[in-house]
């Protein structure tokens, strides 16, 4: 399953398009997606600190998706580095 992940904050610099696409096995969890994204960045965007994904959240437009959640099908996700608003 191909998952499109929108990039924000410091992770935007991983791809000028503002998103990445990662292949994940069916019924994968967010924890698996996190590992696959880390590997993807290591291979394709080595300038990005790989540890940033460890402290980033995954989300839909509606909610944060924690590690135990299944990766939803046919839904663009976002990866959210630590926040710094205000």
């Amino acid at each position: 399953m191909n998952v499109r992940i929108a990039l924000y904050g410091a992770l935007r610099e991983a791809d000028p398009r503002g998103y990445l696409e990662v292949d994940v096995p069916p019924d994968s969890t967010i924890a698996t997606l996190r590992e696959l994204l880390t590997e993807h960045l290591r291979d394709h965007a080595p300038a990005i600190n790989a540890g940033l994904v460890r402290v980033s959240a995954f989300a839909s437009a509606d909610e944060i998706l924690h590690n135990h959640r299944k990766v939803p099908e046919n839904l663009e996700l976002a990866v959210l580095p630590p926040v710094s608003g205000g």
Binding site: S56, H66, P81, P82, S84
Partner: peptide
Amino acid sequence: AWSEGCSLCQPESDA
């Protein structure tokens, strides 16, 4: 530089 901040997935983040 992007500011460091608060992790939304790790409330005990030491960031």
